Simulated scan of single mutants.
Amino acid sequence: MKGYIHIYTGNGKGKTTASLGLAVRAALADKKVFIGQFIKGMEYSELKLPDYIPNIKIYQFGRDCFIYNEPTEEDILAARQGLDICREVLKEGEWDVVILDELNIALYYNLFQVQEVLEILDNKKENVEVVITGRYAPKELIDKADLVTEMVEIKHYYNQGVEARKGVEY
């Protein structure tokens, strides 16, 4: 079976959530799911998912959420190491679904280059389904993808001062 490339992008809420929904669906269909989270290094609720569904594995390739500051050398190193791991995961083809969560944000902050990601996607095993999330998907990735969904924010309670809530936003 051919694996396709999905992108979930846009300024609306729900990109990671949609990818996690797909992960659960795939895992419950006896598929192996690898989730690599770029940028993220904090304690998100989804990190408990492998405790409940053993054929899902989640790895974080971030140290902290630096999006309000400039990335440090350590942030760049963590992202690059994560990209190297994902390169091998996609090339080996052991996982049925590979989610590259917030990869678009890593690109936006120049933690690595879009050309590197395109090369990795060109060398993935044909059967691997890939999901890439994050705002600011570059045109080159959009052109490469088989499915692109843009989440559009129409209204968000964050603008009324509601902070991120455990179990809903993290």
Rank of each mutant, 00 (worst) to 15 (best):
N11S: 07
K13D: 03
G14L: 02
T16I: 02
T17Q: 04
L22S: 00
V24I: 15
R25W: 05
A27S: 11
L28F: 13
A29D: 09
K32L: 10
F34Y: 15
I35L: 11
Q37W: 07
I39L: 15
M42I: 15
E43R: 15
Y44N: 12
S45M: 12
Y52A: 15
P54L: 09
P54V: 06
I58H: 07
Y68W: 08
N69D: 13
P71Y: 01
P71T: 01
T72W: 05
T72Q: 04
E73I: 02
E74N: 14
D75C: 09
D75Q: 00
I76P: 01
A78R: 01
A78Q: 01
R80G: 02
R80F: 03
R87N: 14
L90W: 11
K91Q: 11
E92S: 06
E92D: 12
G93N: 03
W95P: 03
V97E: 04
I99F: 00
I99E: 00
L100E: 09
D101V: 06
E102C: 06
N104M: 07
L107M: 11
Y108W: 06
L111Y: 11
F112E: 08
L118R: 11
L118Q: 13
E119F: 08
D122W: 03
N123S: 09
T133G: 01
L141C: 09
A145K: 13
A145I: 07
L147G: 00
V148A: 11
